[in-house]
Nucleic acid binder design. Structure first.
Length: 456
RNA sequence: CUCCCGUUCGUCUAGCCCGGCCUAGGACACCAGGUUUUCAUCCUGGCGACAGGGGUUCGAAUCCCCUACGGGAGGCCA
């Protein structure tokens, strides 16, 4: 049995769409699963749209998701070049085969592929014109995902435009032949065109690869498949919003594929091991960012501290926190306090900023709530001495000291908590209060309590 | 207009190929309760689906047919 060779053949548009990403991912998974080769081929025949930046967006997105390619741009390989724009002579060679077999003809300056079969003309409602059709035998596609699909191609089609550029259907097939592609894994939107492709494979005397058409990803709401304009459609968005790449990749795997045993959060090694066409669904899947976020939160919680710290640092730095002036051990303690609590990395700054800077606002609703109960001045007054005098300043000593004062004043210990939290963070929620105060240290907490007391 | 593909909780899905183990399982979301100083986590429970109709069968989510709906393609776009 020969080696599996699969390819991802994107056209660089300047965006890395989530649907494309999943096609790439499924190809990559199949290659990894079978020990085959994953080839990246750039379909850059549209010269105006294809810029260097557009290519970089694509490569960057691939790398972010961890999809490395065995052959392609920057990787090289024996079947290059891997840019369609550089493969013209190969297309010419294959075109000659079709010409020699009499399977082409010129019309309106373009080169057409000739189907075999009886010809007739009829008015076509779609084209709004009389068109020539062919009574052509149906092509049988044994699709690895959808099973047997039969479809007859009924019209000749252009393979080289009048301006000399070969069209997608032709170059795609030629490249797959020339690159020895064994399995074509792509979106279902290509299923109808597959009959064209099979006709070309046959006319070129090439072996037809195994096709595997994966379902499409539908937009979150409303009709139709996801397009680049839709919310959440772009991979680079998730990178910018500091999503965990493993989580995004894991979620995309689950759109249209299932390991069949209720497992969802899986390591990439597990997914590679278990991925196969039998687990790919036939029905289209609707994208759901809520579920992605939930999975992402789970990944955040399980991140190793050094990895979390690195991500967190770059986010805080970008938000203007001068980490250079902050003790690393302090930063680490703060991050430990919040890793299990935040639901997404882009809420990190709001969750911890007051640990690093004094100029924070006081939540208006929280302030109202505090004023409603026992006078916050009284509450703070009762416990100020703890922060002024406590020799050993720790979570435990604070707790017992506050507890003692609470009992003396016939209150519950948590009567004091909202006020302290508001004074030291300006917020109504956050990390566990006592550990938080402990990490902040007396040198930060005491002045904040004092100034809050004056402010009241 | 034609052709192709699909249709299980709101969403992602398990079950379907090889009919009975399905009073249809899990996850996210939502709701209620518990844990918690708060928030988050965590725990418990709830809500909630076989698109419809015909067959076949002792028995159908599973097999067959029809209809409806959804998606895709039909380009000198990819």
């Amino acid at each position: 049995m020969s080696e599996v060779r699969v390819r991802f053949a994107p056209s660089p548009t300047g965006f890395f769409h989530i649907g494309s990403a999943r096609t790439a991912l499924f190809n990559w998974l199949y290659a990894k699963h079978t020990g085959g080769k994953f080839i990246l081929r750039i379909e850059d025949t549209d010269k105006e749209r294809n810029t260097e930046e557009a290519l970089q967006v694509l490569l960057e997105g691939m790398r972010w998701l961890g999809l490395d390619w065995d052959e392609g741009p920057e990787a090289g390989g024996d079947y290059g070049p891997y840019f369609q724009s550089e493969r013209q002579s190969i297309y010419d060679d294959y075109l000659k085969i079709l010409k020699d077999k009499g399977r082409t003809y010129e019309k309106d300056g373009a080169l057409w592929f000739r189907l075999e079969g009886e010809r007739y003309t009829e008015y076509d409602e779609f084209h709004k014109a009389e068109v020539e059709k062919v009574k052509n035998a149906a092509v049988v596609i044994e699709d690895a995902i959808r099973g047997r699909v039969e479809r007859a191609e009924e019209r000749d089609f252009v393979i080289v435009r009048s301006n000399g550029e070969p069209v997608f259907h032709f170059v795609n097939v030629v490249d797959d032949i020339a690159m020895g592609i064994t399995h074509v894994i792509r979106g279902e939107d290509h299923l109808s065109n597959t009959s064209k492709h099979v006709e070309l494979f046959k006319a070129l005397g090439a072996e037809v690869p195994v096709f595997a058409h994966i379902p499409l990803i539908l937009k979150q709401s409303g009709p139709g498949k996801m397009s680049k304009r839709d919310e959440g459609a772009l991979i680079e968005e998730y990178e910018q919003r500091s999503f965990i790449a493993d989580a995004v990749r894991n979620y995309i795997c689950l759109l249209g594929w299932s390991p069949k045993d209720d497992q969802e959060k899986m390591s990439i090694e597990t997914i590679i091991e278990r991925f196969d066409f039998a687990g790919v669904n036939k029905g289209n899947a609707r994208f759901d960012e809520t579920k992605l976020s939930a999975l992402n939160a789970e990944y955040i919680r399980e991140l190793a501290m050094d990895v979390f710290a690195e991500k967190a640092s770059s986010i805080l730095k970008a938000k203007g926190i001068n980490l250079g002036s902050i003790e690393e051990s302090y930063l680490l303690k703060v991050l430990e306090l919040c890793q299990g609590k935040i639901k997404s990395m882009d809420t990190l700054f709001d969750y911890v900023h007051y640990f690093f800077q004094d100029g924070y606002d006081f939540d208006a609703k929280g302030m109202q709530r505090i004023q409603k109960g026992v006078d916050p001045k009284v509450l703070l007054g009762e416990i100020m001495s703890i922060f002024e005098n406590e020799a050993e300043y720790s979570s435990e000593t604070l707790e017992s000291s506050i507890q003692a004062i609470a009992e003396a004043n016939e209150r519950k210990i948590f009567a004091y908590f909202p006020v302290i939290r508001m004074a030291t963070s300006g917020l109504t929620g956050g990390p566990d209060l006592l550990p938080m105060l402990s990490v902040m240290g007396r040198e930060r907490v005491l002045p904040r309590l004092q100034s809050f007391l004056e402010k009241l």
